[in-house]
Simulated scan of single mutants.
Amino acid sequence: MKTAFLKLPFHFSEEKLLKDLEVCKKYEFTSHFNKNDYSGDWTSISLRSPNGETNNIFALPQTEKKYKDTELLQKCTYFKAIIDSFECEKESIRLLNLKPGSVIKEHTDYNLGYEDGIFRIHIPIVTNKGVHFFINYEEVKMLPEECWYGNFNLPHSVRNEGKTDRIHLVMDCLRNDWSDKLFAESGYNFEAENVQPEYSRETKLQMIEQLKLMDTEISREMILQLQKEL
């Protein structure tokens, strides 16, 4: 069975994470672009984006555009130190904020598992006991100071039933020898990663709608491939 999630062997300072979060709160967060995937209030701000702007929150894996650090990242010295400690290339890096009472509906992403050459990292900054994060139908309790990988090709959803925000630092990183060693030490199942996921017709249609919102050359190529598979 493919590895759905992994807790990675890092331990960060909650105090320093919160300090950089306060810097980010002085900027405007942008509502997530895919309105179909959530209800309530789900917002984001970019520390690294395709054009270097904080309000560009698109995160398409291995896009044709070179990702750039935003001006905000330069003001967040601890976030930058964490990012630099990952010895691999990075694409999108964002803060994602799920407000109280909000829900990210169950969905699957496309080409967003370690087997695809990319891995998404979640570092919780603010959370509460009412947050319920499910990956492949299993609840994952992510706490501040921790670091997690999730295979988001698999079904996943989040509910914030608490009274405070849920804010994570989310990084998309490109796989290399350093990350292979890290994942091996953390218990990743390499033998299972070549098993191709079987997406339902409904899931493929949802993926196509998500990719249409991005409107890039690579997203259009993905749409054509998915349409052939319908």
Rank of each mutant, 00 (worst) to 15 (best):
Met1Ser: 15
Phe10Leu: 05
Phe12Trp: 14
Ser13Met: 10
Glu14Lys: 14
Glu15Phe: 02
Lys16Ala: 11
Leu21Ser: 07
Phe29Glu: 08
Phe29Tyr: 12
Thr30Asp: 03
His32Gln: 15
Asn36Gly: 09
Ser39Pro: 02
Asp41Met: 08
Trp42His: 09
Ile45Arg: 07
Leu47Trp: 02
Pro50Leu: 11
Glu53Thr: 09
Thr54Met: 03
Thr54Phe: 04
Ala59Val: 03
Leu60Gly: 09
Pro61Asp: 10
Gln62Trp: 04
Thr63Ala: 05
Lys66Met: 05
Lys68Leu: 08
Thr70Gly: 01
Glu71Gly: 08
Ile82Asp: 02
Asp84Val: 07
Ser85His: 11
Glu89Asp: 14
Leu95Asn: 05
Leu95Met: 02
Leu96Arg: 01
Ser102Leu: 04
Thr108Leu: 10
Asp109Arg: 11
Gly113Phe: 15
Glu115Trp: 13
Asp116Glu: 10
Gly117Asn: 07
Ile118Met: 07
Phe119Gly: 03
His122Gln: 03
Ile123His: 06
Val131Trp: 00
Phe133Asn: 07
Phe133Asp: 12
Tyr137Glu: 15
Glu138Phe: 06
Glu139Ile: 08
Val140Met: 14
Val140Cys: 13
Lys141Ser: 07
Leu143Gly: 00
Leu143Tyr: 00
Pro144Thr: 01
Trp148Met: 02
Gly150Gln: 09
Gly150Cys: 14
Phe152Ala: 04
Arg159Lys: 11
Arg159Pro: 00
Asn160Ala: 05
Gly162Ile: 11
Asp165Asn: 14
His168Arg: 04
Val170Pro: 07
Asp172Thr: 08
Asp172Trp: 11
Asp180Gly: 11
Leu182Asn: 05
Gly187Pro: 05
Tyr188Thr: 07
Asn189Leu: 15
Phe190Met: 10
Asn194Lys: 10
Val195Phe: 13
Gln196His: 13
Glu202Asp: 12
Lys204Leu: 01
Leu205Ile: 13
Ile208Ser: 01
Leu211Gln: 10
Asp215Arg: 08
Ile218Asn: 12
Glu221Lys: 08
Met222Trp: 14
Gln225Pro: 01
Gln227Phe: 00
Glu229Phe: 01
